[in-house]
Design a protein around this nucleic acid. Structure first.
Lengths: 193, 193
DNA sequence: GTCATTTCTTAACTTAAGTGAACGATTTCA
DNA sequence: TGAAATCGTTCACTTAAGTTAAGAAATGAC
């Protein structure tokens, strides 16, 4: 399980065995049941998440309707907006599956940083990395039709389509559940000829 | 002009007069004519931009059609994806207006960092900041209809609607120019009653 | 296992975006 | 200045997404 964490960190910096042990001793791991809501709209929180196993979902409730805008799976990091701004959250975060997380907060960052000066460097690289990926995703979203977006998802994150309910996927694709059903039927029809 | 730069930096770190002078002496300023293409698809580049005055546009050409995905105006920073990855660019960057830029590259970062240790810190804060804003924008885009997106733009960046041609705005909103025309007419009709 | 709830699909209808074409109005540039 | 290209709007038509409603299928609770 920890391997996922160390594989992830290894993408950015290298750790000694000793450093790894110190990290593990911090006891950051947390196991969360499917359906648990980690963050609610209006709530303040200092918790940042890193997914070791499982899946988190970020969603808004707008006019009484859930609007899912992101999924976080293995190796994904998630710092809710409200953590940086110290404002009430505009969105919810819940567990799509039973999930194992690393939970940290900015204060611990300071502490950890004292022991690992490299940690700061890694955080910057991570932020830049996420930003770059986010921008590409956004561009792809803007330049595609819902159907293309679904096909892209099928290519890039096929696991999501299996592990996430359709009605959550649909708003992630920017459409209604009925439209996703129809769109899938349309694609199937095409492939048959 | 430099005030824009220092106002921007002041959001993150504070500089002494001496430090400001050193920064100015680096001669990073560049004036670029409207229509100039700073980066082309397929091209490699190390240049990062910060807009002091004017407007840059990022666009793809997909099936022979320009798809605009971002505009960068005063105080916006832009690091093309290809700079970090050292791969050919997938998109173009051009000047919508005569523009004054600060042009840097990662190597200079090393040099600058020797003189300003704070610089590194600022870059991380900036990356985190941009990431947070980007995520909110993306969420907003996903959860809105084209019409809502246009109204949001009218609220949040009214200047863009003035300074940017309609057909570039439209793909930024994820629709065709004709649809933007129609949508504007529709809104006007509504407001009349 | 059964009942209730949630989720997914289908259908009919409405609304809005895509497409192709035409038309002035600008803008560009020789 | 005058011709050519670009740009914005409009129109008629097509296609796809939103909406409302209903029913089938899967899931969960007891």
């Amino acid at each position: 399980m920890q391997d996922i964490l160390f594989d992830f960190i290894a993408k950015y910096i290298s750790l000694t065995e000793e450093e790894k042990n110190v990290l593990l001793s911090l006891d950051l791991f947390r196991s969360v049941k499917k359906g648990t809501i980690l963050l609610k709209e209006g709530q303040k929180s200092r918790d940042e998440y890193f997914v070791l196993k499982g899946c988190l979902r970020k969603y808004y409730i707008i006019d009484g309707e859930e609007k899912t805008t992101a999924f976080f799976t293995e190796m994904d990091a998630l710092t809710p907006h409200c953590v940086k701004e110290n404002t009430p959250s505009e969105y919810f975060i819940s567990c799509v599956e039973n999930t194992i997380l690393i939970v940290t907060n900015p204060d611990m960052g300071v502490e950890v940083n004292a022991k690992f000066p490299k940690f700061d460097l890694m955080c910057r690289m991570l932020a830049e990395d996420l930003l770059a990926r986010q921008q590409i995703n956004f561009d792809e979203f803007k330049t595609s039709s819902p159907e293309q977006r679904y096909l892209n998802l099928l290519q890039n994150r096929p696991d999501l389509i299996q592990r996430v309910p359709q009605h959550q996927l649909s708003s992630y694709l920017g459409i209604k559940p009925q439209s996703l059903s129809r769109l899938r039927a349309r694609i199937l029809e095409k492939s048959k000829g």
